[in-house]
């Protein structure tokens, strides 16, 4: 059966409904809990085994020893493909996913960040 303008009913019904699109950036979608967003590093837990560095497909992590059994991580978020393999590889859960997904930067340098170990918590700096 051919019916010209079969969609007419549907479109007219929808013309009175609110749009399905989100008004991004004013309304932001919430990502599920295990979303593979920006990776964060916990220097207290890291033992410097460098499994993450070995498995990262994008060469996006560097782990440097700073002092005795103290490590800091430098991330190249511009290269990271957010696969979260490093999170799986880390034996000590020193790396974690976050739900953060708005990661665009105008300056590439802002993507290079270092997580420093500090007496009172972690300090995140732009990489030198």
């Amino acid at each position: 059966m051919k019916i010209p303008g079969k969609m007419a009913k549907e479109v007219l019904r929808h013309s009175l409904k609110p749009p399905a699109t989100l008004n991004y950036p004013y309304v932001k979608p919430e990502m599920p809990d295990n979303f593979r967003g920006k990776i964060v590093f916990d220097p207290v837990r890291c033992i410097g085994c460098r499994m993450c560095v070995k498995d990262c497909p994008a060469l996006a992590i560097e782990i440097a020893a700073v002092g005795d059994k103290k490590f800091e991580a430098r991330f190249y978020l511009d290269r990271c493909i957010y696969c979260a393999q490093c999170v799986d590889s880390c034996p000590k859960d020193a790396l974690l996913n976050t739900k953060e997904y708005e990661l665009a930067q105008i300056d590439r340098q802002n993507h290079r960040i270092t997580f420093h170990a500090h007496a009172d918590g972690v300090v995140v700096d732009p990489a030198p």
Binding site: H14, S15, K17, P19, A20, N23
Partner: peptide
Amino acid sequence: IFHARMQNRKG
């Protein structure tokens, strides 16, 4: 806008 609304967009 009417076109967009019929397509369930914001327009």
